[in-house]
Design a protein around this nucleic acid. Structure first.
Length: 306
DNA sequence: GACCCCTTTCCTGGTT
DNA sequence: TAACCAGGAAAGGGGT
């Protein structure tokens, strides 16, 4: 059966268009190419923002999220509160500080920030001078992709700041390190856990999430960082895991952008959400529009799990 | 290539 | 009337 979808969105997804848009602050929250929705938006000086020492707390988190996403590391596995600091504080962290704050991926983060410091210092243009404003007020994309080949770049000067990672350090860097059990283990008796138990051992443990971020994780992560998505989704009952879509179509477009699917709509997104009912990742909230609730198999959203 | 999983797409019908 | 909800059916696509 051939389904020719009609593209109802105005989000350009061609390679060309994509190549002119810097990667958003986070792949999971990939920004809608709002230039399509907001024809004119004010420019912004990027001169300072290319240097991490001038970053705000918000931008530090953007960078952190971007780096985790790039390496397909579950954001819920990282103690974000350890990075509740501005760029200046971030830049003053030592290699050991990063390791303590982020565990096994500390070296990766350290290397990343060292590269950015170095790039900014030497005036390398790694940030495209483009600002994007979505229909959701302040949802801005600012952090471009970090270089994947960071470890192969020449390393002028400050070796103390830029220790080379050994091959062992980089082994399986795309494979997330084991997150806390509380964040990954479905309730033993739940259908989800049974489903996992029935899987071959290799697929249970080999890769945490080979397909990348799932929709519910995407939603969860938006909720966990409300400062980054003003007006998209909000908690109705934080403790109970009840949340509500405020800009359903905007969220759908963000999801579509992440999946490189310009025809994503809330209608389709909500269908995918409803499939989570069976797996108890979400629970029904009867009688309330745009309201969902995390179920027993949704992990990482509780405050106590942070 | 088969199979599994997670969506994605389309659809019908109901509700707000 | 529009937007949303519910869920069946089938296909797409990546991983094993």
């Amino acid at each position: 059966m051939v389904r020719q979808t009609s593209c109802v969105m105005s989000v350009p997804t061609s390679a060309n268009a994509e190549s002119h848009v810097p990667a958003p602050w986070s792949a999971p929250y990939s920004c809608v190419d709002a230039s399509a929705m907001v024809p004119a938006f004010p420019g912004r000086s990027w001169a300072q923002e290319t240097q991490p020492q001038f970053w705000s707390k918000f931008q530090v988190w953007e960078w952190l999220q971007q780096t985790l996403d790039m390496h397909q590391i579950d954001a819920a596995s990282i103690p974000f509160h350890n990075f509740d600091m501005d760029g200046q504080q971030l830049c003053s962290m030592s290699f050991q500080d990063f390791t303590q704050a982020a565990g096994p991926i500390g070296p990766l983060l350290f290397q990343s920030i060292a590269d950015l410091k170095w790039s900014g210092q030497y005036g390398i243009e790694i940030f495209a001078p483009l600002d994007i404003k979505t229909e959701v007020n302040e949802f801005q994309c600012s952090i471009p992709p970090l270089r994947e080949d960071f470890n192969t770049w020449p390393c002028p000067g400050d070796e103390q700041l830029r220790p080379r990672m050994s091959p062992q350090d980089l082994v399986d860097i795309k494979t997330p390190f084991p997150p806390p059990a509380a964040l990954t283990s479905p309730t033993p008796s739940s259908p989800e856990s049974k489903r996992l138990q029935n899987r071959p051992q290799t697929t249970q443990h080999k890769k945490h999430n080979p397909r990348g971020t799932h929709l519910w994780e995407f939603i969860r992560d938006i909720l966990l960082h409300p400062d980054r998505n003003p007006g998209l989704i909000k908690w109705e009952d934080r403790a109970a895991g009840v949340f509500r879509f405020l800009k359903s179509e905007a969220v759908a477009q963000l999801w579509g952008k992440k999946k490189n699917n310009s025809s994503m709509t809330y209608e389709k997104l909500s269908r995918a959400m409803r499939y989570y009912y069976k797996r108890e990742i979400l629970e029904r909230v009867d009688g309330r529009r745009l309201v969902y609730k995390f179920g027993r198999n949704a992990q990482g959203w509780k405050e106590t799990e942070k």
